[in-house]
Design a binder for these strands. Sequence first.
RNA 1: GCCCUUGUAGCUCAGUGGAUAGAGCGUCUGCCUCCGGAGCAGAAGGCCGAAGGUUCGAUUCCUUUCAAGGGCACCA
Length: 548
Amino acid sequence: MTPEELSAAISACLTQAVADGDISVEIPDIVRVDRPKSREHGDWATNIALQLGKKAGMAPRDFAQILAARLAQAPGVGSVDIAGPGFLNITLDTAAAGELARNIVDAGERFGHNAALSGHVVNMEFVSANPTGPLHIGHTRWAALGDAIARVLRASGAEVTSEYYINDAGNQMNVFARSVYNRIHGLPVPEGGYPGEYIRELGQTVLAQAPELAEQDEQTALPKLRELAYKAQLEDIKNTLADFGVGFDVYFSETALHEGGAVTDAVARLREQGHIFDQDGAVWLRTTDFGDDKDRVLIRANGEPTYFAADAAYYLSKKDRGFIEKIYLLGADHHGYVNRLKAIAACAGDDKDTNIEVLIGQLISVNGAKLSKRAGNIIELRDLINWIGADALRYSLARYPADSPIALDPEQLKKNTNDNPVFYVQYAHARSCAAARNAAQKNVVRDPQAFDAALLSHETENELLAILGQFPSVVASAAELREPHRIARYLEQIAGAYHSWYAACRVTPIGEEPVEPVHATRLMLNDATTTVLANGLNLLGVTAPERM
RNA sequence: GCCCUUGUAGCUCAGUGGAUAGAGCGUCUGCCUCCGGAGCAGAAGGCCGAAGGUUCGAUUCCUUUCAAGGGCACCA
């Protein structure tokens, strides 16, 4: 029995009590049940009587009394006690609780999937690093977190498209190309250009493909050089992301927006909506109509569109492609963009509270130290992966909510490798796999007929089952709140409960002792744990090794 | 000046109104004759930044205040 099923049972009791005229009150959609901190308070507790007592015009304890009497009759419920001002402490029937292990194993990879966001059609844009340099630590957090959010949303029934916006337009690309050109010819970095060893490597890559560029003057060489360097850099970014386990459904080019006329078109459409005005020779969007602190220029006095105009066109593209919810994941250094992005949505006729969502992630700060061999003081994602591994890195980043600031101490980064919580969780998974291998050797077979849920009566089994049963609701809340760190913290709980159980209850008989039903039953619980750990790690983009 | 985020154990951080505020690391004490000791059992460590308010109940919600980080372009 999962907490959801218990919650539903309580709701049913309430509905019946109202129908019978015992109480008169409006029943909330869902009744929350919590795992009490103290075992003395039963398996699950609810404060529903405290919430509804007053509304029903009776003392919470009297309300609790009525509900408890009915709930105690519900299938799977062992006993119900009333505590304090009106808490309901519920103890499940051992067999009903244990049945969960079989259900989890039956569900397999599907366990944890839920319908909390079914019907939602979502576009998620994140990372979107400029193709003028390698991915660095500043992009890393959203790469890990964004990918995990996408996975969690999908597991909760949403239809998700992940997208990378390539800022391949504008003057920066010319500066980028000149930086490579200068480096090839041993000239100094141009004004506002890109330093870094990777520029030299790009130069080599480009010359390998088009040696003639070395002989040409800047004006002749630049267009092709820019194209080749850009492609090489984008390729490098994609490779690094792949090594990090992050893939995008769509790579969307800003240049394509401009060249396809989408920007001009967007301005025209926004003008039709009545939020555009002309002033000082420029074309403005009146974003102040929707909470921005000043209006924004779309087309400059010189006729060139701004970056913001491309943003508007991009938003409209997402809208046109059928995405109801557009999620933007941005760093804290872009928080000033939130209001203007939302204003675009509103100007386009969308609801800025439901059709667009902008999540701001605090930046990762690093204490001093230059760690990158190639780019000077920029810490590259590729280097981080090489140092601490994709698993450990992804897990450590997905473990904290986005708005919590993370300070990484470069020296501690490597040292942390051994006490990173990811090993605690992965170890639990590997250990459960080992336990299953050993059980097989001793002829403890996976036989559903031999499974007897009532045998899972040890207190560590009660605890482990209770935690395993929470997985679907943890996934659902991680999706609804866009907080995958809840998955990580939850997995650590499972690992702890599993290790305790492992120390107390054996899956395999000792020595020559006979195999009994209890062993097959425990193997089921062991397998259930393996399943939930693997499913959870997968949602975070972290591998679940069978051996370590 | 205005806006956003964050102040919880020595350190790094969980905790979307409930019972005795949690975890990891670090410190201390026990536990390998048997399924993985990368583990388990236990101890110590807290004025939840401060002050008001809302209510049966506040670390959580509201206001004020102090401190830290980030942001306020006809750049991209």
